[in-house]
Design a protein around this nucleic acid. Structure first.
Lengths: 197, 197
DNA sequence: CTGTGGACTCAAACTGCAAACTTGTCAAGG
DNA sequence: CCTTGACAAGTTTGCAGTTTGAGTCCACAG
């Protein structure tokens, strides 16, 4: 019971450890990250890290999980920020995704998964891009059905799925600036959504 | 002059050599293909092969080139076959692309290029997927502007680019049967094309 | 009790090196 | 013109021997 203090310390440890791991992964890649480095960065013993995460793989999984959650939350926030303007909302969300992928190596790796050639950062075992993409899709679908209940459900699903795929495609093979790409995709999506059935 | 007979034989050699190389690449992967194997399959000496293609890389380039040309031609044919019905035309073209990617390892590799993890078939040096995709886009754009001159040029370009990207996306990460995917994408494209500007 | 640091095991990764193999070229012969 | 055989240069393969780093155990300290 009364161990809520411990819980907080434990959580602090997890957070700082994941922060340290994030930095190390971004710099050297997952394969070169040593448990000892992470422990040292946190200022804790290697053993303590093992007590908390169990294994390096589990640390990696936790890291990817946190990154995924933050990313999906971010997308949802961008949408919510423009709940009144559908086109702006989509533009913001797509722009956010493109910018995150360009900025954050982990997000980039998670979204494009199999592409380990550029920067093999992740344990392929722990992740495939599928879960992130479905999570992102769910967020978008929820937003659309909530703000625009008049739209056909099937259409919303197909357009959302395509929007997500197109965003990933533009991450993998960019042809324009993130801003212009985001605008193009959102107008495209809006046309498809509001077209005569 | 008067060597048109030679020309034909030479062409025959190129064709059968590329056929043999195609089969070997599909079975063992490009790295494991030996120039001797190709020569033997054609029934010709290794030197003759070198006289014709110069190097293994150039043989690979020629092979990829032929495959690309055939693929793009195939897409154009599918479109032309339904010149009267836009939706059917797009469905056929996308379906053709999906089926080719599923059937022909070389087409799959060319279209998805960088993804060498599944079946590293190609010399990364000789190809990137970009040229194929732009070629395919050009074919689709030409078809659309020819059959539907009323459509806005910018819209046609964006929709086509997205259509191509979505097709590749569904090759990389399939979620449904090729037929249904093709139908979904064509209705999506049609909606976007014919939406109020 | 919980965290620490050191000792330890074991499998995977890397190292150095020799043998086998391939590419690409050349010359002799049909 | 094509083929066969030979060859240099470069690469891959197989296999010692070594190193590394994950994961575990434990005696000890706060």
């Amino acid at each position: 019971m009364g161990s809520s203090f411990r819980q907080i310390v434990r959580q602090q440890l997890r957070t700082t450890a994941l922060d340290a791991a994030h930095r190390l992964v971004s710099e050297r890649g997952w394969a070169s990250v040593r448990m000892g480095q992470v422990a040292a960065a946190v200022g804790v013993s290697r053993q303590t890290l093992y007590n908390e995460f169990g294994s390096k793989d589990e640390l990696g999984t936790a890291l990817v999980q946190r990154e995924t959650d933050q990313f999906v939350t971010g997308v949802a926030e961008q949408l919510a920020r423009h709940a009144d303007d559908l086109e702006k909302a989509v533009t913001a969300a797509v722009g956010y995704a493109l910018e995150q992928a360009a900025t954050n190596p982990l997000v980039h790796a998670v979204l494009t998964s199999a592409r380990t050639d550029t920067a093999g950062l992740l344990p392929l075992l722990t992740t495939r891009s599928e879960p992130v993409l479905t999570a992102a899709s769910t967020v978008v679908i929820d937003f659309l059905t909530r703000t625009r209940p008049d739209l056909d459900t099937d259409t919303v699903e197909i357009v959302t799925d395509s929007l997500v795929r197109l965003t990933v495609s533009h991450i993998v093979l960019p042809t324009d600036t993130p801003e212009r790409t985001a605008r193009k995709l959102s107008t495209l999506a809006l046309r498809a959504l509001t077209a005569p059935h």
